[in-house]
């Protein structure tokens, strides 16, 4: 609190407070309670600094560094882990795309598990940004599909379809956010400022891929299991009461590395890369394979593709 400068509050804080008031009638009771909490009591969970913090996009480098150090300290205090939270911006000339080979995926959920650990998800719920559907051959009826099968895979007559954020170019989740806590970045990744999110969950409802998650409780992770390489917009431990989502592991991919779910895939079903590079693996998939888009009729222009081997 003491290292907060006047510039750190100001317009941003007013903006969010106004939004909270204006949004009252629209919000669910739970979200409303959480949103109002800071106004009544400054708990250990929500400090005044955090509440008064500006929107990520309005923080200059000096202030952002302060915020990052504060978040690191909070993680140390609350979780007992020494983490490094960085801010990684998009790389010029890079547009991310992801493709998944449905002929090869066997539904083993190693991707979902890798996501769980990489992104510091709540251990209790075993949360993950990836949900793997077991569907019957020739059918895409998700209501008939299973996401909690626990027999060996693959089963005859079934195919497996992992679904995660499609990083749409026309993202409905971004459009519905009343406070612009979520937006699309220049390299195509849709991100959330977890410190700006008011937890109204409109975005979660707007996503046809059900790719967003809401933190009902404070995430529980033992200190020794925390992935200490974190970034502000991706895998830092999210506060309770906010919405979170897959970022194609931007803390890795913006540094040139492959996403955690791809590296964990034992079948080699996942292909990731730069859509602007004509020699990239992802471009070759799009150019040479039969490529499909889930729910294409919605016109959301996803960056995530499915393909089959001929």
């Amino acid at each position: 609190m003491s290292d907060t400068t006047p510039e750190e509050h100001g317009r941003g804080a007013v903006t969010r407070r106004t939004a909270v008031k204006a949004g009252t009638a629209l919000l669910g009771a739970g979200a409303f309670a959480r949103a109002m909490a800071p106004l009544t009591s400054f708990t250990k969970d929500i400090t005044i600094d955090e509440f008064l913090q500006k929107h990520y996009l309005e923080l200059d480098d000096a202030h952002l560094q302060k915020v990052l150090r504060r978040l690191e300290k909070e993680t140390k205090d609350e979780y007992g882990a020494d983490v490094q939270i960085s801010d990684v911006r998009p790389t010029p000339g890079v547009q991310f795309g992801y493709a998944l080979n449905l002929s090869v995926c066997t539904g083993c959920r190693r991707c979902a598990d890798a996501c769980h650990h990489e992104n510091n998800h709540d251990r209790r719920t075993n949360n993950s940004y990836i949900r793997v559907f077991e569907l019957s051959n020739g059918s895409l009826d998700f209501s008939e599909g299973s996401v909690d099968y626990d027999h060996t895979v693959p089963q005859p007559g079934k195919f497996y379809m992992p679904v995660q954020c499609h990083q749409c170019d026309e993202p409905p989740c971004v459009d519905v956010c009343p406070v612009q806590a979520t937006w699309k970045e220049a390299d195509g990744i849709v991100v959330v400022d977890y410190n700006w999110c008011i937890g109204c969950r409109y975005c979660e409802a707007a996503c046809p891929y059900h790719a967003r998650r809401f933190n009902w409780t404070k995430p529980e992770i033992p200190a020794e299991e925390i992935n200490t390489e974190q970034s502000y917009l991706s895998n830092r431990i999210r506060p309770q009461g906010v919405v979170e989502k897959c970022t194609f592991c931007l803390h890795r991919t913006r540094k040139g590395r492959l996403p955690a779910c791809l590296e964990a895939c034992p079948t080699g079903a996942r292909v990731f890369g730069n859509l602007l590079d004509p020699n990239s693996e992802i471009r070759r998939v799009l150019e040479t394979k039969r490529v499909y888009v889930l729910k294409e009729e919605l016109g959301l222009k996803p960056r995530f593709f499915y393909f089959f081997d001929e």
Partner: peptide, 27 residues
């Protein structure tokens, strides 16, 4: 696997044509 009905087949040219202009604008 046979192709499920509502997985729409996308035309590659289409896909790229929409992403490239966005990218250029951003650049």
């Amino acid at each position: 696997i046979s192709v499920p009905g509502s997985l729409a087949c996308t035309d590659f040219a289409c896909t790229l044509n929409r992403i490239l202009p966005v990218a250029c604008r951003h650049r």
